[in-house]
Design a protein around this nucleic acid. Structure first.
Lengths: 130, 130, 130, 130
DNA sequence: GTGGTCTAGACCACA
DNA sequence: GTGGTCTAGACCACG
C-alpha cells in the first residue's frame, strides 16, 4: 500500500479507507491484529501520529478495537461494519454524480450513459493493465 | 440559491459549481451578465471576498469574463466550457464510486445495483419535494 | 475555567466535558461561537492541538460545528445534544456506583444511604463555600 | 470470573477490584488463600505479569499478604480494609455523578430521579438475567 | 513491544 | 484571523 501526501484528501483518511476496504475484502479477519502504529508508519514513511489518528477513527466506527500493550484487532462485527461503510461511500459518490448531472440539466439518458462510460473505463483500464 | 457554510466543501467552491451549472443549464446565456459581487454576497449573506474568489476561478475557467465597470459576463464559449466541466465532474464522481466498490471487493452486480438505488433515490426524492 | 494536567483523565476530555456542560447550562447559545482554538489554548496554558482534539469530539457529538475561517459555533440542536450527553454521564456514574456496591454485597439500604451521604456532601460543600 | 480486555479500565485494575469485592463480600475469609498467580492467569487467559501487578496492589492495600512458597492470603484486617475501599469507590462514583449533574445545571430533582432510574435499571436487569 | 496523550512548531486553505 | 493537517519527538501506562 501507499499514500499520496499531495492529495487534497488527508493522509489519515486515505489510511482509514484503505484499512476499511482491506477488512471488507477479508484481508484482515475478525480477531486478527492489523499492523501496529509504528509498523504502518514506517511502512508508509509517515508519522505514527497520523496513523494513530486513522486507527482512532476506525475504532470509533467499530471496525477495530485497541488492546493496550497488544495492538489493534478486527472486531467480530468489523467485517460487516466495514462492508456497510464501504457501500455507503459508493452510494454517496453515485448520488453526488447524479445530483450534479441533474443540476446541470443533463438529460437522464446522458447521465446514465456517463455511468456506463465510467464503468467501461474502470474495467478496461484495470483488467488489461501491465 | 443558497449556500451551506457547514459543508466540508468550501463556500467559494459551492458558488463556482452553482454558477457553472446554471450556465450549463442555460439559465445565463452568452453575453448576459451574472449577478454582481456585492449583489451575490448580500443575497447569500456572506463576505464579498468569498464571492470574488469564486468569480476569479470561473474567469480562469473561461466561463465568464470581467468587463471593467460593467460586471461579469458569460463568454461565447462559456456554455460549452461549463457543460464540459459539469459532465467531467459527473464522470469523476461515478469513477470514484466504481473504484471504491472494486477496492472493497464488491461484486460487479452489487456496484451496478447501488447505482440503480442512488438513481431511484434521486428521482423519488426530487419529484415530491417542496 | 482550568484543567488538571496531572489527572488521569486526559486534558482534551476535561475540555470536552467542560464545554458540553457549559452548552447544556446555556452559557453558549445556539448560533453563538465558542472561544477559538488558540484563544482557549492560551487561556488554559496548553497546546492548541489539545484543544483542537476536544473541539473535534464535540463536533462529532453534534454539539458544535466548524466554519472554516470563522470559528466553532453551537449548533441548533447543540443544547439538546449536550444536555442528553451530560445526563447520560450522570446515569453512567450512578450505575457504576450501584453495581460496585452490589458486587461487594453491600445491602441495598447501605447503597442508598451512601448516595444520600454523597448528596448531602455535595450540597453542603458547595452552598456554604467562601 | 472474567475480564474485559476491551475496556478502557486496565485489566490489572479489573482484577484488583474484583478480588477486593470478593473479599468484602466474604467469598475469601481472613487466613484463606486466594488463587495462585498462575492459576488466575490461566483461568483468565492473560499474562501472569498482569495478575502479579494486581496482587502487588492488593498487598500494598493490606488486603492480602504473600507467604513465600505458599501463596497469597487474606489478612486479618483484609475484610474491613476491602469493605472500606469498596464503599469509598461507591461514594466516589455517586459524588462524581452528582457534581457532573450540578455542573450541567440539572435541577436537583432531575439528578435524584436519574439515580432512581439507575437503581431500578440495575435491579430489573439483574433479576431476569441468564 | 503496544497504544494513548501531549508539546512545539510548521504549512495550508478559507473567510 | 480562523480551523485542519502533519511532523518530530517526548513521556506514560499497559501486557
Amino acid at each position: 500500500m501507499s499514500v499520496d501526501p499531495t492529495s487534497s484528501v488527508p493522509i489519515y483518511r486515505q489510511i482509514v479507507e484503505y484499512v476499511r476496504r482491506a477488512v471488507a475484502a477479508g484481508v484482515h479477519r475478525p480477531g486478527e491484529a492489523i499492523p501496529s502504529l509504528r509498523a504502518m508508519a514506517l511502512d508508509l514513511g509517515i508519522n505514527p501520529n497520523t496513523v494513530q489518528r486513522a486507527y482512532e477513527e476506525l475504532e470509533r466506527e467499530g471496525v477495530i478495537e485497541a488492546r493496550k500493550g497488544l495492538g489493534m484487532f478486527v472486531t467480530k462485527s468489523g467485517v460487516a461494519s466495514a462492508r456497510t461503510k464501504s457501500e455507503a461511500s459508493v452510494f454517496a459518490a453515485f448520488n453526488q454524480g447524479i445530483r450534479a448531472g441533474k443540476a446541470a440539466r443533463m438529460p437522464a439518458g446522458r447521465i446514465r450513459a456517463t455511468f456506463d462510460e465510467a464503468w467501461a473505463d474502470a474495467n478496461t483500464k484495470r483488467s488489461g493493465q501491465s
